[in-house]
Every structure is written in C-alpha cells, then in structure tokens.
Design a binder for these strands. Structure first.
Lengths: 202, 202
DNA sequence: TGGGTATGAATGAACG
DNA sequence: CGTTCATTCATACCCA
C-alpha cells in the first residue's frame, strides 16, 4: 500500500495514539461533503471517501463513519439548543419559562408547556423548528414508575440532550437522564447541603 | 489584584480571554451541587444553575455543562487510579501486578487480569468498588466480535451495514432493504461542488 | 520565563 | 440516533 507508516503532517497527535487524528485537509474535505448534503453515507460512499482521504493521511472507513455520525448529531444538537433557547426566551417574556421550573428553590415535577402556548408560538413562528425530539409530554409516565418505583422524577424518556453553541464553542445540556441512581429524584438546590446522595457508580 | 473593577474577581483572567474563568464562588457552588449528587444536569438544571451563577460573574450554560462533564470525568479517573493502586498493591503481594507491564521499559499490549484474579479479589474485598468503568476489556471489543468473527476492526453499526445494508442508515436491522435507489451508485465526489445531494431523510 | 499542573473545551469512539 | 465516555488539545495560573 501507500507508505502510510510515515505520517502525513497532522495525522499524528500522539505518536502511538490509537485514535484517529484527522488532518486539516481531511476535515475540510469531510466538511465539504457534508455541506454538499451527505449525512449518512452508504458503505460504498464511505469506502470511496476513505480512499480519497487517504491521500492526506491515515484514515479508515470507520473514522469516516464516525465523523459523519458525530458531525450530524452535533449539528443537530446545536440547532436544537438554539431553538430551545429561543422558545424559552420567547415564552419567558410572554408567559413564563417553559423549560424551567417557576421557582428556583423548589423541587417540582416537570413542567410541560400548555398545548395552547406552543400552538400560539408556532402560529406566530411558523418557520421555527421545534427541537427534533421535543415532546409535549413524555411518551408514557408509567414507564417512569417502571423504571424506579419511586417519585415522579423526570420521565425516563424525557431525557434529551442538547448542545448549546455560543459562537465558537458548543454546549451540551441534558434533560435529566440517569443511569445511576443518584440524581434520581434530586431535590434540586436542596437547602440542606449536608445531604449527600449515595452514588452507585457515578 | 483586579484592576478591572467592573468584573467580579476571577471572571476575567486575560482581557481578551477566550475561555471561561470561573470565580471562587462559582466553583464552590458548582462543587456544592456536585456533592449533592448532580452529575449530568438536565437542561433546566443547567439553566437554573447558570442563571444563579451569573450573580458571581459571567457564565454560560455551556460552561456549566462542561464543568460537570469534566468534573465527573476527572473524579472518575481519580478514583480509578486509587482503586488501581489499591488492587495492584493487593495483588502485588499475593500474585503479581495486574495493571502494569512486567517491565517498565517495554511497550506491551494491554494486559487484562484473569477473571479468576478479579473474582478472588472481589470475594475478599466485597466493599471495594472497582473503578466505575473498569472493564475486563476495552470498551467495544466484545461487541465487535459479537456480530460475527469477521472484521473486528469495524464499528458494529458500520460493519453491520457493510454486511447487509448498502442504502442509507434508516434500514437498521432489517434484512437488506434498500429504501431508495437514489444513491446506489452515486456520482461520488462530484467535482462540481454546486451539485447538492438531496437525500430523502437527511 | 520556561516547565508543571489544574482545568476549560473539543471531539473521536462507542453505548443503549 | 441521542447520549455518554475517554482522551486529547488549549490555556490559565503557579512557582522557582
């Protein structure tokens, strides 16, 4: 094959690194493909892209695969966040925050916007996309209890993660999801700081 | 210290600083939340925390998000190190070092402790938690091989598609149905950048 | 003022 | 696919 033992500049971050380290060229080409509409390339596409990008440094099909997955996901998260921030801000002025409890010091069950609120919002902002997986209500609250027979914590399926991107960076925010038992029914901002929750594996 | 009286101490490190610089108060509040069990705060939580911490200096949601991510991860790695040291020490007396190469000067592939070793260890030290993400083997090998013995180096999903799906990602586990033929043999790498691929579901 | 450490930010890889 | 983890990059702060 190609003399891929020697590294094209940029493809080496850490010498023995196990993780792919894309070169500038590779990234810009990938972004170019993305900007051309490629989102979930087929296997053949992946292979072709891969062999092309090999000209700029070591790369494998799986790297391309992951790159598209990540890029797509993060792009989506970014937009979702923006949407949410906007909606939140909008409703904050008009009504009250949608995604935040009315009072910061209180433990409260999840607040779902009134159908009417959102309808009105969407009427006025027809172009505004709601976050992709935005849900008016959790698919089934029953599931919450199935998951832990304890407290109406934030519904299992409500979890939702998004990323906020402010200019340069990006941010993720998670709508309460848990796999470990801590933070199950977190008394948010508990006023008893001495209270320590057992954390199983977190 | 703070020549800029406008700024809450610490919120500005370097004047044109690109990166968030938490104040003491912000940090201690974040740590307080963490100690109360918050690990991966939901969107609402992040927003609340953020707006609270704004009282002590500039901060954005993404800063809070990253803070929890990093703090959790670094806590985890710290504990892992401690556990490792302990286990290592234990086995050093009884057996031989588990997690360290036999010789310091040699590069060697990862060594995984025998199941039996760990089992025995855990029998004798039931209270000892293994590092949260301690794994007998790296994250995905099992999964990769699980699919079939062929082609271990490819991510499961991609591999999956390699095997049976040439279309877009929508057809996941079903048996080889191409949803649409539009990109079967795409004129890949269009040298005319104006050409936009339009995929049904991207 | 250069190395060393703590930590904010980013992203490749992978899980459920 | 959304979420989560591990690792790395980048930078602020420290110290002699």
């Amino acid at each position: 094959m190609d003399s891929d033992d020697m590294d094209v500049a940029g493809s080496v971050g850490a010498p023995g690194s196990s993780r792919w380290n894309p070169t500038k060229e590779q990234i810009s080409m990938l972004e170019s493909f993305y900007s051309q509409g490629i989102r979930t390339p087929s296997t053949e596409m992946i292979e072709q892209i891969t062999s092309r990008l090999k000209a700029y440094g070591h790369i494998e099909g799986k790297n391309v695969f992951y790159w598209f997955q990540n890029h797509k996901a993060r792009q989506r998260q970014k937009q979702k966040q923006e949407s949410m921030a906007y909606i939140n801000n909008y409703l904050h002025k008009v009504h009250q925050p949608v995604f935040a409890p009315p009072c910061a010091n209180v433990v409260c069950s999840p607040y779902y916007p009134q159908q009417s609120e959102v309808m009105r919002f969407r009427q006025q902002h027809p172009r505004m996309l709601l976050p992709a997986n935005f849900k008016m209500r959790p698919r089934s609250e029953a599931r919450t209890y199935a998951f832990n027979g304890y407290e109406p914590a934030v519904p299992y399926e409500y979890h939702n993660r998004l990323m906020m991107n402010k200019g340069d960076g990006r941010t993720l925010v998670t709508i309460n999801h848990k796999r470990c038992s801590d933070q199950e029914t977190l008394p948010l901002f508990p006023l008893h700081p001495n209270r320590i929750f057992r954390r199983s594996t977190c």
